[in-house]
Amino acid sequence: MSELNFHHLRYFHLVARLGNLTRAAEQLNVSQSAVSTQIRLLEERLGQPLFERRGRTLVLTEAGRIALDHAETIFATGEELLNTLGERPSSRRQVLRVGSLATLSRNFQIGFLRPLLGRDDVEIVVRSGALGDLLKNLEAQRLDVVLSNIAPPRDAATPWISHTIAEQPVSLIGTPERTASGATFQELLVGEPLILPTVETSIRSGVDALFDRLHIRPRIAAEIDDMAMIRLLARDGVGLAVVPPIVVKDELASGELVEVDHFPRLTEIFYAVTLARRFPNTLLRELIAGVADRPG
């Protein structure tokens, strides 16, 4: 088997970074056809198309994205050799690109990523946003995984894979002052102001169904789509929060907040959303495979 031609790889690396053959040719001081030839030879050697054309822009295929990651590792290794022999510090790191729903619990995100946090050989990039934008970035291979408490619909056009990585109970939680009256769970639901997730959430639909069964008209202090904001309002005593305990685990541990009770048959499910890929990120595989062995 013939060896990989690093001259081809260098041309590919520059085109991948610029997304344009003409600009790459100008920087290399060669003709555009010469660059195209080098890319074609590399694709033939690897047996995979590395680019697809969208208008005037070249976009990496999945194989192209993998090739780029390896090319950058190869060139970084060469630089590391120079740094090592020149007695200059350097390091190489694997990268995991994570998209996270902007309203998702920070405690949950940290818990999922904890096995990789602090590792010298790993860099974690986390980008928050709306689910639609995150899924577009996942499809474009700018993200390796999207963390969400909403499972996106799956069909032939959008074949998302939603890995269930946690299921948390939903509880009624508040300050000791608001929960010290000795009132029952149902009495607190009737008598105390409530901090609720917004109507778009799965938690809210379950809570509203319970209110309907019990003929309760809740006193709503606030409707919030951000778990971090719910946490702050609960700590400030604005009302009793309807929230998974993981969101306020530090406050529960310190006694700043108290858990009254779980809502019956109501949970929040957390997902790691991916796409089927021929070359999945090994760090992501490691995280998902280890979920079953971690405490909930």
Rank of each mutant, 00 (worst) to 15 (best):
M1Y: 11
N5T: 07
F75N: 10
D121F: 09
I161F: 14
R154D: 04
E26N: 10
M227C: 11
L257E: 04
L240S: 02
S128H: 15
R204T: 00
R65A: 08
Q38F: 02
R235V: 07
V126Y: 01
L41K: 11
L233P: 00
H215F: 09
S162K: 13
A292S: 12
S128I: 13
V125A: 09
L283R: 05
P244E: 04
G255T: 01
P197K: 11
A34G: 08
S91V: 05
G19V: 00
R127P: 03
K136E: 11
V260H: 04
L68F: 15
V207E: 11
A67L: 05
S202V: 05
R92I: 03
L81Q: 13
D225M: 14
V35C: 06
S148I: 15
R204M: 13
D225N: 07
P115F: 09
R54G: 08
A183I: 07
Q38M: 05
A102M: 12
D225G: 14
S171I: 11
T103K: 10
E200G: 10
F12K: 05
Y11H: 15
L18F: 12
I161M: 06
T57F: 08
R204G: 02
R127W: 12
A221G: 03
A76M: 04
R93W: 05
V190A: 15
L283K: 04
N5V: 07
I110V: 04
R40C: 07
K249W: 15
A253T: 15
D225R: 06
R213W: 09
D236T: 03
L18R: 14
D293A: 07
T164I: 08
N281M: 02
R154E: 09
D226V: 13
R92Y: 10
D293V: 12
I195D: 14
V248F: 02
M1G: 09
S254K: 06
